[in-house]
Design a protein around this nucleic acid. Sequence first.
DNA 1: CCGGAGCGTACGATCGTTTGTTTGTAAGCA
DNA 2: TGCTTACAAACAAACGATCGTACGCTCCGG
Lengths: 207, 207
Amino acid sequence: MRSGLDTAKVIRDKAAELFFEKGYDATTLREVATAAGLKVGSLYNHIASKEDLLLQVMGGIIDDLVELQQQALGVEGDAVERLRAVIECHMRFHAERARAVYIGNTNVRSLSEGPRAEIVAKRSAYERILEAQIEAAGDAGLVQLIDARLHAYSIVAQGFHVAGWYREGGRKSLDDIVADYTKIALRELKVVDADERVDVARAPAEA
Amino acid sequence: MRSGLDTAKVIRDKAAELFFEKGYDATTLREVATAAGLKVGSLYNHIASKEDLLLQVMGGIIDDLVELQQQALGVEGDAVERLRAVIECHMRFHAERARAVYIGNTNVRSLSEGPRAEIVAKRSAYERILEAQIEAAGDAGLVQLIDARLHAYSIVAQGFHVAGWYREGGRKSLDDIVADYTKIALRELKVVDADERVDVARAPAEA
DNA sequence: CCGGAGCGTACGATCGTTTGTTTGTAAGCA
DNA sequence: TGCTTACAAACAAACGATCGTACGCTCCGG
């Protein structure tokens, strides 16, 4: 018999796999149980309900994201440096924790009113901060904005998308992907010397 | 009693609404029936199965997209002109037919093996063509690529995303959104005079 | 020997789908 | 025009399957 904590972790992991591959609605608790080496009834020694399991799998991922964004906002430098940090943080998070992010983004609809509203609110607050940083860089005259909200959407979209396809051990390393996407984002904002800013950030000891 | 064709259309429309709002898996045929002013059994006078209804709603949308892409490939001009046309076509399609595209993208997983494989294949062929156009422009030295595939992903991602939020009568007109996103995409490719190229394309009779 | 953990079984609900029947409407014929 | 026939379409009802969940029993480790 496994220890209770181990079993709970196995359940979460297997559930995450299944939720990622088939979606929450299409995943059966019996499938989760089988994958975890259990019978369906035994799951209830570790979870309160199916929705509770989904929440465990999402596991405050949005809170982690918001927290990292706050850290990124604290970097030294001008508005563009700050924006670059926020974007890099955004892309890195969405690649590094792709599976959980993907599950979170695609299955919010399946949550009941309370938790859903909470998550949606946090996510839109996160996006508003990104947009505000973009606008700040625009106001400072350091970037040439087309439309702040659309730029924010564009960057958010790339995060969502990368969470859908990124896997460890793929064609490019995580660092390369993050660096490339950050370049891409800064290019669309027409930052002066956008590419160089990224390269400098990657090799700060070069000089 | 309505005519058969009208009823079939009402069913498709209401199903599209529900699939868009709640997702295919979470939508009940009884809900569809109620929304269409029918009882659940009556649906089967017009559909073969629930999956068949989903396929009707998706309705060859990927074929339409591929066809429009082919048209865009036929424009006069250099590799960048062609690329610009492909991108604009991409964004316009994803905004104009947002609901159907969104349903198609989020519910492929719920299809059975055959139709799913077909749609996935078409979609990835579509993406490969976009990527090829990007690479062609790069080879011609007209754009400065970071990574052709990532650029393609980036543009695809923006299409998916816009399909999730665009509604008629929003803050910006469809034409503005398309134009802005096209500018954004060309900027990330570092096209020479990217913004001007878009503006010229919007007002070709200016000269 | 006590309690946590797994198992077997079953529950009520709800799903997609099928069936037998009724009903509205349009065409064919007197 | 009136009556009949035919058929598409809507209905009520029920089907088997499957879902999430609950419960009581068994077993093993500390």
